[in-house]
């Protein structure tokens, strides 16, 4: 995903190298091939404040933390991600960002219990973020129980993937709108 920020020139250059490699001659005589260097037209992508915030959360900060089976305690790696989420949300200019934290469960539990467990996970994430200084009023929570698996398989890997708290941005708020209006 970071490729987006590399620009397209690097991408074209590496493709050219690949192309050269793949034409390695099988015959005896050497083939001299000149790869014409084309200057790519680089267009700066235009992203909305929402798109920029979503990309940063998903690609750099990390939007998802994972839980143990039937557990809602935050492990060290989860806390590290949530510290970054809090830093992102607390950064000047980002105060208007509002988030939805969804708690998810694997399929090894009843539907009703997992709705309660997913709620517990979402609240664990919210509680940690609030502890890191994010205003509780900016955080909404929802439990999906076992209804929204990321990975549809029934394997230990899929179960681990599906036990998560997922943060998504619901709005970037008034601050960003003010920015784009030239304030």
């Amino acid at each position: 995903m970071n490729l987006k920020f590399l620009g397209t020139s690097g991408l074209v250059a590496s493709m050219a190298v690949l192309a050269a490699c793949s034409t390695t001659p099988e015959a005896d005589e050497p083939i001299v091939e000149t790869v014409e260097r084309v200057e790519p037209i680089v267009e700066e992508p235009q992203f909305s404040p929402m798109e920029l915030a979503v990309m940063e959360l998903e690609n750099e900060v990390g939007q998802r933390v994972f839980f143990g089976y039937d557990a809602s305690n935050l492990q060290a790696d989860a806390k590290a991600i949530l510290v970054r989420q809090a830093e992102f949300l607390n950064r000047p200019g980002n105060e208007g960002i509002r988030i939805l934290v969804a708690g998810n469960c694997d399929e090894r539990g009843t539907r009703e219990y997992n709705l309660a467990l997913g709620n517990r996970r979402a609240e664990a994430v919210r509680g940690f973020l609030v502890g890191e200084g994010v205003s509780a009023s900016r955080i909404e929570t929802v439990s999906y129980g076992k209804e929204r698996p990321l990975d549809p398989r029934s394997t230990p890997e899929a179960w681990a993937m599906n036990r998560n708290g997922t943060t998504t941005i619901t709005s970037v708020g008034a601050m960003d709108e003010l920015d784009t209006m030239g304030f």
Binding site: L100, L115, N119, E140, T141, V142, S143, E147, R148, T170
Partner: peptide, 10 residues
Amino acid sequence: YLAFFDDRPA
């Protein structure tokens, strides 16, 4: 029944 939403609590 339970109404299940994506963007708010059930």
